[in-house]
Design a protein around this nucleic acid. Structure first.
Lengths: 176, 176
DNA sequence: GGATGCATGTAAAATGTTACATGATTTA
DNA sequence: TAAATCATGTAACATTTTACATGCATCC
């Protein structure tokens, strides 16, 4: 039974509100890879096929600071012999928060922010010819995304990615 | 040919960057209904089956101020005989910006923020039994959403909504 | 020697959230 | 007359974006 929780932001979150989706996704990267630098985390977000998060330093560095303050991460001074760096990994508390975030079916079932759905709701305001052109363009864009490599080092993520694209293509076809 | 544009936010946006998705969705409501109050706009967002936007006054009132300043809206003092109010409708510039937003296939094809996809990418980290339970819970949640009324006054939007839910259910079934 | 990649950060600005507040009107 | 709805707003705060900045190491 998942709690229907409010959006993160505002004065809320004394940490009892659960992880934000960015935090959850960051912990997911750490859960898979083990110790990572913040830079590697940035790269992971920046390389994502979704354009929703920029993966900017301005988002990632403060977020790690938050998770560290909440004792969900440990920092480890590290070095590859020459260059120094700081690696982060999860504490038991971090792992628990991650799993609670991951398995929150209430949040998972939400429609989130879907740029196509948001537009389709209004598409009937335009003439049929333009609707058709638009859907063709979107399908072509998605085909382009499907043709470009993603998650090459992660079979499971790639499978989800590809099935998402296939499902979306199938949806668009039903709208034609 | 749609321009791949950057995210709105930060110092960017001198208005040449296009509408945010919240602005686009607000103009969509106005495009459909004609003149609306900001309160009605709030209600429209708050009543949306997507939990992504809260439809708070703190988001809507400043947003309308922005669109007004950008000369995309006109304000009309109005009254139903007793209570006074202010209605807003689109200018030609607003309509043009709305259509550019609506028909931006590049943005429409983006994966946006999908709370289920975000989680599925990590689901292989858990044992199969928990994966299965989770997918069943999500399917049940989506069925609940599908069973609750939405867009009762808007056939086109309801059709999109229902087809979205059906497509998502179909996707989940392929993951089982 | 210059470009590129790894790594770390900060600053200003935009946008949104929660929460609070007010007042008029309508309904129970 | 009390509660709900319509309608308008503000304040404090959190998150994130863009943009800038630094320094070391490696590759060409």
């Amino acid at each position: 039974m998942e709690t229907k929780r409010k959006k993160p932001s505002g004065p809320s979150r004394g940490r009892e509100a659960g992880l934000t989706d960015l935090e959850g996704a960051a912990l997911a990267v750490i859960a898979r890879r083990g110790r990572v630098t913040r830079y590697a985390l940035m790269q992971a977000f920046a390389g994502s096929p979704s354009g929703f998060w920029s993966g900017s330093a301005g988002a990632v560095y403060p977020m790690i600071r938050r998770l560290l303050a909440a004792r969900m991460l440990n920092a480890h001074a590290a070095s590859d012999g020459r260059r120094k760096r700081v690696d982060y990994d999860m504490t038991a508390k971090g792992r628990a928060a991650f799993e609670a975030w991951l398995l929150d079916a209430g949040r998972a079932a939400d429609m989130g922010m879907d740029p196509l759905r948001t537009r389709l709701i209004s598409l009937d305001l335009l003439p049929a010819a333009r609707r058709k052109t638009f859907l063709n363009e979107v399908a072509a864009e998605i085909a382009r995304i499907a043709a470009s490599p993603a998650f090459e080092d992660d079979r499971a993520a790639r499978a989800v990615h590809e099935s998402w694209l296939a499902a979306r293509m199938a949806w668009i076809r039903t709208l034609g």
